[in-house]
Design a protein around this nucleic acid. Structure first.
Lengths: 140, 140
DNA sequence: GATTGACTTGGAGTGGACTCCAAGTTATAT
DNA sequence: ATATAACTTGGAGTCCACTCCAAGTCAATC
């Protein structure tokens, strides 16, 4: 079998783009499991750990708060999602949330394009999710 | 000419989905101009003000910090953007940022779909913007 | 054997964006 | 006249996600 490479926290920080402090913070709040230690107490990370950290980064980009990530991170990479019906629900709900976000963002892009184009008409977002009246409005 | 309707802060909060406290907070940090007052000192808002608030909500959805919104809000609705070359640059840069965000989000959606689909393969994001090495990685 | 560097820990501090509060004013309803 | 409601102000408090710090350990180098 092959030797699996391990990384120091510094290397891990470099490879994931997440600062050492932040990695320790994630461990402190148990978003990451307690990392393995060498004899001298130093943390070591494996490929698998890096990928979990990258998944956090990924989910953060979608605006998910750290607390909400727990269930996602707890499921192992190759687990069958059908065994976690609750998680499936959360995934679906988050998917919908992201889809709404994308729509919102797209409208801002449109707004910017319009603004950059003829510069007279505003046609901004309000993908009407949180807004009490889910109305579309058009600036004139 | 027509009577332009005005709104109380409460109505404005209802119409925009932003709390009264938050509206006052935006005024406090001068993200919104000091609102007009009635004789009794109560704030009044016009259609135009509501639209500015809605624009804030809109930009917030794209993850823009309040401080960065100032230049966008200062330009009047029907100003010619070509007169504000700096703003045009910011708009373009923000547009790129949002486009990257959309790509990121789309990848999370794909990840979720894959996860919900066969549940074995992870193919998450990393639209390689902040990541030091802009590599695409695939979970196996 | 003293220094340097990479790490450890617990805890304190920061910045952004609210959110809440107390004390006061004014208008309307009973 | 008094209670209720809708506002005003300045300032304090909260929550999240870091970010920084001091004190200590350990291993290798000069």
């Amino acid at each position: 079998m092959k030797e699996e490479p391990v990384f120091t926290i510094k290397q891990t920080a470099e490879l994931t783009g997440v600062s050492e402090d932040t990695i320790r913070y994630y461990e402190k709040i148990a978003l990451l499991p307690r990392a393995e230690r060498k004899d001298n107490g130093h943390r070591i990370y494996r490929q698998d750990n890096l990928e979990t950290i990258r998944l956090i980064v990924c989910l953060k980009k979608t605006g998910m708060p750290l607390e909400e990530m727990r269930p996602f991170l707890n499921v192992s990479v190759d687990a069958d999602p059908a065994q976690y019906p609750e998680l499936v629900e959360q995934l679906k709900s988050h998917r919908a949330h992201i889809a709404a976000q994308i729509a919102s963002l797209q409208q801002v892009v449109d707004f910017i394009d319009t603004k950059l184009g003829d510069g007279r008409l505003r046609q901004p977002c309000s993908a009407g999710s949180e807004t009490p009246k889910g109305r579309t409005f058009i600036y004139k």
